[in-house]
Amino acid sequence: MDGLLDQIGNLLTGIFALAEGGFDGVNQVLGLIIAAIAAILMASWGRLFPTALAAAFIHVVINVVRPVLDGGAFVLPDILTLDFWLALFALFLGYAIVIALFFFLKSLIFGRRHAHAH
């Protein structure tokens, strides 16, 4: 039983570390702009996870396109590596946290009619 509890503790520690890394990635100008727009467009709490996933993908796309706009080479991310998927999952967790915070603030400012499903 102690082994199972240790494994669960390690899993939770890993998830919290990913969330912290994702939050650090979102807590920059690009991430905050994406999260703010996502929170404004999000219609209900039930849309939080799909919205966070879309925001994470948009973040990756912008990071791929931005060097091209600066005159650099077009380089696709290596989507066949575990590092890519862990980074994307970390961004997803970070966006879920920040979008939830922004949506909560939106619901406080504009009232409940904007914070629940229609």
Rank of each mutant, 00 (worst) to 15 (best):
V65A: 15
I40P: 07
A43P: 15
S44H: 11
I34W: 05
A39W: 06
I58C: 09
A56L: 03
D70L: 14
S44E: 14
V64Y: 05
A19N: 03
V68C: 10
V29F: 11
E20T: 05
L41S: 14
L30H: 06
L30Q: 13
P67L: 03
G31T: 05
L48S: 06
I33G: 06
I33R: 03
I40A: 14
G22P: 09
P67C: 04
D24G: 03
I58S: 10
L41P: 11
G22H: 06
A36C: 12
V26K: 00
P67H: 05
R47Q: 15
N27Y: 01
A56G: 05
L69Q: 10
W45C: 04
A54L: 14
V60Q: 05
W45A: 10
G25L: 04
F49N: 07
P50L: 06
Q28W: 02
W45I: 03
I40W: 15
L30K: 14
R66V: 06
G46R: 11
A56K: 00
V68P: 06
I33L: 13
I62S: 05
Q28D: 10
G25S: 10
L69S: 11
A56M: 03
G25T: 01
Q28E: 09
A35Y: 03
R47Y: 15
F23Y: 04
V26N: 02
I34T: 07
I37H: 12
G46T: 13
V60Y: 01
A43R: 15
A35V: 00
V65R: 08
I33S: 05
I37G: 15
A39Q: 07
A55P: 01
A36H: 09
F49D: 08
V65M: 14
R66A: 08
A36P: 13
W45S: 09
N27F: 09
A55K: 00
P50D: 08
I37D: 11
V68L: 12
H59L: 04
G22I: 04
Q28Y: 01
A52Q: 02
I34A: 05
A38F: 07
V65C: 11
A35T: 00
V60D: 04
L18C: 11
L32S: 03
A52W: 04
G31D: 02
V26S: 01
Q28V: 08
V29W: 09
A38W: 00
V68R: 03
V61K: 00
I33V: 15
W45V: 05
A36I: 13
F57I: 13
A52F: 07
N27C: 02
